[in-house]
Nucleic acid binder design. Structure first.
Length: 624
DNA sequence: AATCAGGTTGGTGTC
DNA sequence: CGACACCAACCTGAT
C-alpha cells in the first residue's frame, strides 16, 4: 500500500473499550480527520490460551463485539469491527504495512499484561513511523495519576484514594465525551483482504481452557476467520458447545446502555443504594445493577455510569431527600474499582499473586503457588518462544500439593460439593451463570481461605478468573487479598459463617433451592444444615445427606443425595483464627527474601498448628 | 510516644 | 424487624 503524504489512515485498536459512547480514545482517533479508518480487534492467543476464560465470558465478549460491529455498520454501511486472528505483537506491524497506517490509536490499559504488550507495540510502531495516540478511558481516573497523587505508592485504602482524587480536577472524573455520529470508510474490500499476509499460527500449548473445548479448535486457521470476512468468532469456532452457556447475562453496548437507563430512571433505587444492604441471595431481580461485566469489557463507560448516578443524587439532594453516603453508595462502589486499578498499576504483575508482591501478607496457606522464579531459571534453556518480559506474565501456575485433605476440600469447594448448602449454591451459581453477588463472593472467598479451608487465595482467584463474566485481574486479586485478610483488610476475627450469613439474608433458603435443587423440598429449618434433618424427613424430602459425595446431584435413577459437611465449621473457624494470628505475628510479605527462598518454613510451626516463639518483625519496613 | 477512632458490608444476644 | 452492645482484637492514620 502506497502512503500518500497527506493521507491520514487510522488503525483504531479496540481492547477494553467495546463501545462507541464516551470513548476519549475513539474521539481522539476521529479528531485526526482520517480519510481511512479501520477499527480492529486482535484475537489475542494470550487471552485465548493463557488466560482462564469459561464459556459464559466467551459468549459475553462475542456479544459485545457483535453489538459494536453492528453499531459501526449503522454509522457507515461499509464499516464493522474488523476481527483479525493473530497476536497483536506479530500482526499489527503487518497491518500497518499492508494498510498504510499513519496513526495507531487505543485506550490506555494499566493491566500488567497490557502494559507489557502495549509497550512492545508502541516501540514497533515508532520504529515503523506510525504515530501512536492513547487516551485514558477505562476508569474514573487514570490509575497512574492516582498513584502519583498518592505519593507514588499503591492505593491501599479508600481514604487514600479519596485524598488522591481530590487533587485531580476538583475530585471529579471527566464528563463523558460525545458519541460519534459518523465514521470514515475503511479501504475497499480488495485492499482490506489479508489473504496474502504471512499468517503466524497461535501457540495453543498450554491451553488453559482446553477442558471447555468439546470440538476441534480451528479458530486461528484463517487470519480473517473461516468466512474471510473478519467476522466475530463464534462459540463453535473456538471449540465450545453453545449449550454449555447458561448465563442469562447479555453482552453489548446496546444492552448496557438500556440497563443503565432503566436503573437511572429509578431514582429512589439509585439514591438510596447501599451495598451492604443489598441481598446476596436475591435473584430475579438481582439486588445490584449487574453492570460490572459491561465495565470489564468497556461496553459501558464507568464515567457515564458515575455521572448519571451523580446527577440523580444531586437532584435528590436539592429535593432534600436523604442520600446514602460513600463508600456504600454507587459512586463509592465505582471508586473501589479505581482503588484496585491504581494499586495494581503501582505494584505491577505481582499484584495478582503472592510471589514478589510487596502489598500482600504472606500466610502459610495450603496449596500455595509454586515459585516461578526458580522454576523459570531451571526451564529457561528448554523454553522456546519465550519473549522478553514473559516472567511478568504468569500463565498456568502450579501449586504445592502439601495436603491431600486440602486438595479434596478445594475440589469440593470449586464444584459446589462442600456440604454447606449456602456455599455450594453460590459456587454452582458462579459456574453456571458466571456471576454472583459481591457478598456471596465474600462468603465463598472467606470460606476457602481464612474462614474454613485455609487454602491460598490464589487458588480461589483462579477459579473466579475462569468463571466470572466480569473478571478483572486488578479487582479479582484485590478482593481476594481483601477477603483473605492479606491486604486492604485485616480484621480476620470477622468471619463469615456459611450458615448464619446466608440465613440472615434468605431465611427461606430460596437461593439454595434454586442452585442446589436436590435440597429444594427441605424445610427451612434444615435448609442451611441439612445433615441435621431426621432421616425420615430426608427420605420424605427426596434427598439423603450422606458421606458419599460422589453421586451428588446426579439424580439419575436412584434417590438424590447431598454430602454431609466436609468439616466442622466452628472447629475450622477457631483453627484459622489461631493460624492467622500466628502468621500476622511472623509478619512476612510476598516480596520478602524468606518467602522467595523458602526460609519462611522455619518461621512457622512444623505441624501446622503452632509457630516458633520469636516473631520475625513487628513493624513493617516500607521501602525507602 | 501513646492513645484513640475508624475501617464497604460478622455473629450473637437484648431491647 | 431495627438498633445497639458486646465479642476479641487486626490495621492505619490522626492527634
Amino acid at each position: 500500500m502506497k502512503k500518500s503524504s497527506s493521507q491520514i489512515v487510522v488503525l483504531y485498536w479496540h481492547r477494553t473499550d467495546l463501545r462507541l459512547h464516551d470513548s476519549p480514545a475513539l474521539e481522539a482517533a476521529l479528531a485526526l480527520k482520517p480519510s481511512v479508518f479501520i477499527p480492529v480487534w486482535t484475537w489475542d492467543p494470550h487471552y485465548v490460551y493463557r488466560a482462564r476464560v469459561g464459556p459464559n465470558r466467551w459468549k459475553f465478549l462475542m456479544e459485545c463485539q457483535s453489538d459494536l460491529s453492528k453499531s459501526y455498520t449503522k454509522l457507515n454501511a461499509k464499516q464493522k469491527l474488523w476481527v483479525v486472528r493473530e497476536a497483536p505483537q506479530t500482526v499489527l506491524p503487518k497491518l500497518w504495512e499492508k494498510w498504510g497506517i499513519t496513526h495507531l490509536v487505543f485506550e490506555k490499559d494499566t493491566d500488567a499484561y497490557a502494559r507489557e504488550r502495549d509497550s512492545a507495540v508502541i516501540q514497533m510502531a515508532e520504529k515503523a513511523g506510525v504515530e501512536v495516540v492513547t487516551r485514558m478511558g477505562r476508569t474514573l481516573f487514570d490509575p497512574d495519576e492516582l498513584v502519583r497523587k498518592n505519593g507514588g505508592k499503591p492505593t491501599m485504602s479508600m481514604s487514600q484514594v479519596e485524598r488522591a482524587m481530590e487533587k485531580i480536577d476538583g475530585g471529579k472524573p471527566a464528563r463523558p465525551v460525545e458519541t460519534p455520529q459518523s465514521v470514515p470508510d475503511p479501504w475497499k474490500d480488495d485492499q482490506m483482504n489479508l489473504s496474502d499476509l504471512d499468517h503466524e499460527m497461535a501457540d495453543s500449548n498450554p491451553d488453559l481452557n482446553a477442558e471447555h473445548r468439546a470440538n476441534e479448535d480451528r479458530q486461528y486457521d484463517e487470519i480473517m476467520g473461516p468466512n474471510k470476512d473478519f467476522g466475530v468468532p463464534t462459540l463453535e469456532e473456538i471449540g465450545i458447545d453453545p449449550s454449555s452457556v447458561q448465563a442469562p447475562h447479555r453482552g453489548g453496548e446496546s444492552a448496557a446502555l438500556k440497563e443503565l437507563s432503566q436503573f437511572i430512571a429509578d431514582e429512589e433505587y439509585i439514591a438510596t443504594f447501599e451495598k451492604p444492604k443489598t441481598s446476596p441471595a436475591a435473584f430475579e431481580p438481582q439486588s445490584t445493577t449487574l453492570l460490572s461485566p459491561h465495565l470489564h469489557f468497556g461496553s459501558l463507560s464507568v464515567r457515564k455510569f458515575w455521572w448519571d448516578v451523580q446527577d440523580v443524587m444531586e437532584r435528590r439532594k436539592k429535593a432534600k431527600k436523604q442520600n446514602a453516603g460513600p463508600p456504600a453508595n454507587l459512586p463509592g462502589q465505582l471508586l473501589f474499582r479505581d482503588m484496585y486499578f491504581a494499586a495494581q498499576a503501582a505494584v505491577g504483575a505481582p499484584f495478582a499473586r503472592v510471589e514478589g508482591n510487596s502489598v500482600v501478607r504472606f500466610i502459610d496457606w495450603h496449596l500455595q503457588s509454586k515459585l516461578v522464579q526458580s522454576e523459570e531459571k531451571k526451564n529457561k534453556k528448554h523454553r522456546k518462544g519465550t519473549e522478553k518480559g514473559d516472567e511478568n506474565i504468569l500463565p498456568a501456575r502450579d501449586y504445592e500439593l502439601d495436603s491431600s485433605e486440602a486438595e479434596e476440600w478445594f475440589q469440593r469447594w470449586k464444584t459446589g460439593r462442600t456440604g454447606f448448602p449456602w456455599i455450594d449454591a453460590l459456587m454452582r451459581q458462579l459456574i453456571t451463570e458466571g456471576w454472583i453477588h459481591h457478598l456471596g463472593r465474600h462468603s465463598v472467598a472467606c470460606f476457602l481461605t481464612r474462614g474454613g479451608c485455609y487454602i491460598s487465595w490464589e487458588r480461589g482467584a483462579e477459579v473466579f478468573e475462569e468463571y466470572l463474566i466480569d473478571h478483572e485481574t486488578a479487582c479479582n486479586a484485590g478482593n481476594w487479598m481483601w477477603l483473605s485478610c492479606t491486604a486492604f483488610f485485616a480484621q480476620f476475627y470477622r468471619c463469615y459463617s456459611p450458615i448464619a450469613f446466608g440465613k440472615k439474608w434468605d431465611p427461606n433458603g430460596d437461593l439454595i433451592r434454586r442452585y442446589v435443587p436436590e435440597l429444594a423440598k427441605f424445610d427451612k429449618k434444615y435448609i442451611y444444615e441439612p445433615w441435621k434433618a431426621p432421616i425420615a424427613d430426608q427420605k420424605k424430602w427426596g434427598c439423603r445427606v450422606t458421606n458419599d459425595d460422589k453421586d451428588t446431584a446426579s439424580g439419575k435413577g436412584g434417590p438424590q443425595v447431598y454430602p454431609k459437611p466436609m468439616f466442622d465449621f466452628d472447629e475450622r473457624r477457631q483453627f484459622c483464627l489461631d493460624k492467622m494470628k500466628a502468621a500476622y505475628d511472623v509478619g512476612l510479605y510476598g516480596n520478602d527474601k524468606k518467602v522467595l527462598n523458602g526460609e519462611w518454613k522455619e518461621l512457622f510451626g512444623e505441624d501446622g498448628n503452632e509457630r516458633t516463639d520469636e516473631p520475625e518483625k513487628k513493624k513493617r519496613k516500607t521501602s525507602s
